[in-house]
Design a binder for these strands. Sequence first.
DNA 1: AAGTGGTCTAGACCACTCC
DNA 2: GAGTGGTCTAGACCACTTC
Lengths: 256, 256
Amino acid sequence: MGLPIYLKIAEDIKEKINNGELKPGDAIYSENALCKAYNASRMTVRRGLALLANEGYIYSIPGKGNFVQEPDYNSYTLYYNEMENLVNSIDKTKLLEVNIILPDYKLINSLQVTRNKKIIVIRRLFFTEGEPVAYDVKYLPYYKGMPIVEKEIRYATFPQMVAKRTSLFAIKKELVISAQMPDEETKKYLNIYNELPLMVVEQKLYDREGKPIGLGITSFRGDYCKLYAESFFSDSKTAEKYKNEVSENANNLGDK
Amino acid sequence: MGLPIYLKIAEDIKEKINNGELKPGDAIYSENALCKAYNASRMTVRRGLALLANEGYIYSIPGKGNFVQEPDYNSYTLYYNEMENLVNSIDKTKLLEVNIILPDYKLINSLQVTRNKKIIVIRRLFFTEGEPVAYDVKYLPYYKGMPIVEKEIRYATFPQMVAKRTSLFAIKKELVISAQMPDEETKKYLNIYNELPLMVVEQKLYDREGKPIGLGITSFRGDYCKLYAESFFSDSKTAEKYKNEVSENANNLGDK
DNA sequence: AAGTGGTCTAGACCACTCC
DNA sequence: GAGTGGTCTAGACCACTTC
């Protein structure tokens, strides 16, 4: 069959872990044992084990062996894009303000700048089908020669805004998500007349050295925002590619 | 130096990507070229590249080459544990109800069961320093011989509850996060007398075959719950162990 | 035909753990 | 000292893309 040996090894062990044959803390067969069992070279066996290690299934202790890892119960992957979420997609934005200000106490702390540092403020409203659904504020320390392009300001997400200055690979991003009641100003912007909470997402970006390079606060109408997260144990990804082949091969062998 | 060659290769290329020398879509030196440049065997070079691929920095096209990957702007890692979050840790729970019910329409849909399937309901209150901070409901399809242990019911998180039935490795977890206003009952439970929103986290667990095995809804007082997420480009993990040595080497590059 | 990445081998030396 | 994992080599054959 077309399934590479290293994948076969990884899948077999993964299956043993998934069905409970191997439990967290248990030792796996040694690499040499696996070499013999699969009639494979050690590099091939190690490649299979490396896969499992990458997916969080096993870990190794030099001199002792490979062991089944305790799974991480509390880790999820969250997809967040202020322009797009479960409930709505932003189809229009309105620029409320673009300005350069001096930071107040909170901003000085959050962006770790001096009180004389100029800060760009961008305040926007996000619309979905004519309805205002989110109030968005970004704070960016101003640097000389920083390009400010109208179109970008209107339609860019936060990472896109700073991409001009730094490689996006180098950026660390943080989110703090909370439920809050809107103040009077926000109520007005978002056409809130009754008791309706906000989903507030605070987004902070850091450069490679860990220095903050931007703070964004997006306040969604509670009825227009749901965030979605999932635990992905990257199970299938590895063998997915071969899945068809496997079933094909089951039917017709031997051509090519 | 103690830094393994494959790590050195990976770090060098990563640096080129981070500082913008290599941009998304750009081709990397071919594996053979890297072999010569680092005076290394191809397996070693490929190990370095495999690292970068795993971290989302590059991808490869057979027959063409390795290329710099466009980073994923919208992906974050969220840590969620209903008993523990940014603001508070649950130090006491109160069991409101443990019961077996027949599912209503919504549960039938959500858990994908028949209307005759028995469902376990567990309703709890979570406390922090004497204050009720969250109202928690879990729905679990009932299976014969399912152990129900008082202590577990009181203090277990959702994944822990189902761990008895299925290997946790095999579980897929989903979260849907929203901001809502409390109903009268919840207000009473959580001592809410004024306008205070809820952070509602809906948690759904699936077994290996994708069948739902549990639904949980936790309603936190808005002032007692903040969720935290971060983008981790697993940068450091790889080289962390060698960091001291890396900075040593940073001074005397430029050879070759 | 030449170059690329994908898989794999059969060794090697090292540092470590366990006995 | 025997066994373990960690690193690495110098080849090999394959399928693929490009010219």
